[in-house]
Design a protein around this nucleic acid. Structure first.
Lengths: 145, 145
DNA sequence: ATTCTTGCAAAAGATTTGCAAACAA
DNA sequence: TTGTTTGCAAATCTTTTGCAAGAAT
């Protein structure tokens, strides 16, 4: 990822933290940066192990607290719809996920017409749709052989 | 639900159990029947509490084991994409769910054109789509006031 | 100076497992 | 009779919480 992009993301984070009277800490920044660096959507455990390499003293509880804070600030989202642990995603714009039935990996995919098509699927009877969650289950390139 | 339908479901269960050398027990039947009776998608805990009224000696572990076995037999499915505990659903045909952001309830909804529309959303690059999971988040009739 | 965050350990909630006795085939 | 299932308790896994010390504003 380009440097400008990272700086821009950091600014957004700072703004959102300020708006809530929250502080910026090295642990929080590290968790945030890691989410921004990886292509996939890691579990809290994975974030912990990764950030630990830079900040050996960090605890798993701190990682959980920070992930929750990031979601609260709207700079990350939690993908709880898996079988095991929750995954975290730095994107908050509308997109969907693929989940490999072989290795369990979760990845993004975008669809230009997606939202429009989903709107056509919406039910009527009294339910007000606020958001869509779409996950494609199948096999990734590696696992399909 | 009509009696014939219940009997038909039981037959399917029996067939699938036999095919796997599994046994039919009163606990297993009770768990299965409860799933077939309710309109919503209960958690293991709820199934446990309900079945306990008929079989006071049943344990939560047994309920978990049976729910897993039913999924394994293809006569129920597990809806793990929530924030808290998993939900179980006796339907295995293709349909979708609504999840209320207010009360957390999960319900079915069918869509005639759904599958066709979803196919149009599918990504290309090396991912083989086996199934779709679509959940609509919003507010049910009760919670939207 | 004040408020927030950290790290630790303990707690909590959901689910799984080991095992001897009970049950279904 | 043989293999499966049950019920119990203990174990496991993920996530949350209480709290005193440390860091950010």
């Amino acid at each position: 990822m380009r440097k400008e992009k990272r700086a821009e993301q950091r600014e957004t984070l700072r703004r959102e933290l300020d708006a809530r009277g929250a502080h910026m800490t090295s642990q929080r920044a590290a968790v945030f940066d890691y989410l921004g660096q990886v292509e996939h959507h890691p579990s809290a455990e994975e974030v912990y192990l990764a950030v630990k390499r830079k900040l050996p003293k960090i605890s798993l509880a701190t990682v959980y607290k920070n992930l929750e804070k990031l979601v609260e600030c709207g700079v990350a989202s939690k993908l709880s719809y898996g079988d095991a642990s929750a995954r975290y995603d730095i994107r908050t714009d509308h997109h969907y996920h693929t989940r490999c039935l072989g290795c369990g990996s979760v990845h993004d995919f975008d669809s230009a017409q997606g939202l429009e098509l989903l709107r056509q699927i919406a039910p009527a009877d009294g339910f007000t749709v606020k958001d869509y969650r779409l996950e494609l289950l199948g096999h990734c390139r590696k696992c399909s052989r």
